[in-house]
C-alpha cells in the first residue's frame, strides 16, 4: 500500500499545473524510493519525467511497486477542493481501484476526504540515457518564461544559440523578427537572476515554442531552470524541487529545412 503526506497541498497543485497541458493521463509509479512519472505528450514530441523522492514526504510508506493510473483532469478537479496550505495525504491499497486524498486544515479543524477512481494505463516507458551535454545553461525561470512568451508573439519556432559569450533566443516570423541575449553573468548580486553557462562546444537548435510555453507552467516550482543541450538531440529543461526531486521536460528539436 501507499501512504504519503505533504505539508502543503499547494505543491501537488503546482506539479499538476506543470504537466496537465502536456499529458492527459499517466501512471504515477510508486515504490519505496518515491513517486515517478514518465509520459509523452499525445504527438510524441515532448516527454515529461517527474520524480518525488520518498524523503521529501513525511511520512512516506510504499512497500511494493504500485502503478497508479491517473486521469489528470479528474485529479485536478479533486485538487481544486484542497486549500493551498492544507496538509495533503494520499493513500492507495495494493489491489484497490481508487486513490484516497485527505486534505486537513493546518489547525486540524477541517478534514475533507475524496476518492479518485484509478484507471489501467498501458504506457510506453522510454530509456533516457545519461548524457553529457555540450551546453548547460542555468538561468532565472521567470526570465525563461518571459522570453518564451515574448518571442511567441513573433513566431511559433525559437532558435537557441549558445556560445561562451551567452545564450541567444531568436524568432523570425511574418511581422519581423526578435531576439533576446543573456550574457553569462559572473558578478550579479541577486543569485536567482544570474545566467551561468557550461560549454563544451557551441550549439544551435530550433524548437517549437508551444512546448516551451507548456514547460514554463512549472515556473512557480523553482526560481531556476537548467537548459541542457547538444546539437541534434532533445533539449532537457529541468526545474529542481527543493529537497524533493525534479520536473524534467525533453523536447525533440526541429531539424533541417
Amino acid at each position: 500500500m501507499l501512504e504519503a503526506r505533504l505539508p502543503q497541498a499547494k505543491l501537488l497543485k503546482s506539479l499538476l499545473e506543470a504537466i496537465k497541458e502536456l499529458v492527459v493521463e499517466c501512471n504515477f509509479d510508486c515504490n519505496d524510493s518515491g513517486i515517478a512519472v514518465q509520459a509523452m505528450d499525445s504527438s510524441h514530441v515532448a516527454l515529461v519525467a517527474l520524480l518525488l523522492r520518498a524523503d521529501g514526504f513525511d511520512p512516506y510508506r510504499c512497500d511494493r511497486n504500485l502503478p497508479l493510473g491517473i486521469n489528470l483532469t479528474s485529479l485536478n478537479k479533486i485538487l481544486k477542493c484542497a486549500g493551498n496550505e492544507d496538509i495533503l495525504t494520499i493513500k492507495a491499497s495494493d489491489d484497490g481501484d481508487v486513490l484516497n486524498l485527505v486534505f486537513e486544515s493546518k489547525d486540524s479543524d477541517r478534514i475533507s476526504e475524496y476518492e479518485l477512481k484509478l484507471m489501467d494505463i498501458d504506457s510506453e516507458h522510454l530509456g533516457i540515457p545519461d548524457t553529457q551535454y555540450d551546453a548547460v545553461v542555468s538561468m532565472s525561470s521567470g526570465e525563461f518564461q518571459r522570453i518564451c512568451r515574448d518571442l511567441s508573439q513573433i513566431s511559433d519556432s525559437i532558435v537557441i544559440d549558445v556560445t561562451k559569450e551567452g545564450i541567444k533566443f531568436s524568432a523570425s516570423g511574418e511581422v519581423g523578427n526578435g531576439s533576446v541575449t543573456l550574457k553569462q553573468s559572473g558578478s550579479v548580486d541577486r543569485e536567482d537572476e544570474a545566467t551561468t553557462i557550461e560549454l563544451q562546444q557551441a550549439v544551435s537548435l530550433t524548437f517549437s515554442l508551444k512546448y516551451f510555453q507548456y514547460f514554463t507552467k512549472a515556473t512557480p516550482l523553482s526560481s531556476r531552470v537548467v537548459l541542457s543541450m547538444s546539437n541534434d538531440v532533445p533539449i532537457l529543461v529541468e526545474y529542481k524541487l527543493d529537497n524533493l526531486g525534479y520536473v524534467r521536460y525533453y523536447l525533440a528539436p526541429k531539424i533541417g529545412d
Partner: peptide, 14 residues
C-alpha cells in the same frame, strides 16, 4: 522552420 522530430526516435523503449 525545419521538420519536427519525434521524441521516441531519440529514446528507446525499455
Amino acid at each position: 522552420i525545419g521538420t519536427q522530430r519525434s521524441i521516441d526516435t531519440f529514446f528507446d523503449p525499455t
